[in-house]
Amino acid sequence: MKFIRLATIAALSTTILAGAATAVSADEVREVTTNGQIQFSADEEGPLEVLPPETEPGVTIPPEVEGTTGPLSIVKAATMNFGSQVISNQDQTYNMVAEVANLADGSGQVPYVSFAQVQDVRGTNEGWDLQVSLSDFTSNTQNNVLTGAEIEFVDSRIQYEGTNTENAPIAHSAGLTLLPNGAARSVMTAAQGQGAGASSVVWGDQEDLNAKFADDEIEIVENEAIQLSIPGSTAKDATTYTSTLTWELTSTPGDEV
């Protein structure tokens, strides 16, 4: 009886396999789909690197604050030097001395456009607002405040490091003015759904700066996109006046600029 039982089981197994084979050949499958998946998360500790807005000349620029990390940070801001000027009793406007950047090959420095850069790797598309404010130009001399001085951003453009241009933020309107101790002004704003990745508001024309740098008759290369105006009636001492620009990034989108 034991032998018969085993033989019966074997016969049943053969029948099931034969039936399965018949079903496959009756309904051929020549194409199937499967799924692929990747999940991203915001990196709050990963270091951020400045992405120069101009590809030529090739330069390397360190972050404004060493060790800056994500997910939402200012990685670069503009430093403004308006040079050494002769005291004047007339209203005067001075162009900014062009900032310089180190060439990537280590061969020296070149004048480079000024810019402020925000990097947003939150992955939430919530938007943000970059503002700047200006303190008084002061010294430690008798006439210690440059009364009436103001900085003007003559013109600007946006450099967005992303393939979807609809995500690009917007820059301030031409002629934006900073008044000492006045309200902070928006220079670059990303509305809801904009600003993911790296975005720069750029002041200056790199081709113009290159041409001036190549001209042996020009000793100081100026960036005409940022200017300082001082009334002639303001008393000025023979000294250096300094001011502080405060750049602030908020995660709440501001009004359009």
Rank of each mutant, 00 (worst) to 15 (best):
I226S: 04
G67R: 10
S88F: 00
S200R: 05
G108S: 08
Q206P: 10
D105L: 07
G19H: 05
V100N: 09
D155K: 12
S139C: 10
D105W: 10
F82I: 00
S41Y: 05
P52R: 03
S229A: 13
Q119P: 12
Y160Q: 10
I218E: 10
Y160G: 03
A18Y: 07
V97A: 00
T244I: 11
I9C: 13
H172V: 07
L72F: 12
E222L: 05
M80H: 09
E152Y: 02
V29M: 12
E256A: 15
K212G: 00
R5L: 15
N102W: 00
E152W: 00
R30G: 07
N167S: 11
Q109M: 08
A21Y: 07
E207L: 14
A184Y: 00
G182Q: 02
A20L: 14
Q142G: 02
V50R: 02
P71K: 10
E150C: 03
S229G: 01
E152G: 02
T60I: 15
I87D: 01
P169Q: 09
T147G: 04
P57K: 09
V59S: 04
V187E: 06
N35A: 12
E64I: 09
F153K: 08
I4H: 11
N167E: 14
G19N: 14
D27T: 15
S156P: 04
G83S: 06
G195K: 09
A101C: 06
I4D: 13
A191G: 15
I230N: 02
I220G: 01
T14E: 08
E126G: 10
Q109V: 09
A78Q: 05
G58V: 14
S84W: 00
V50E: 02
T138F: 03
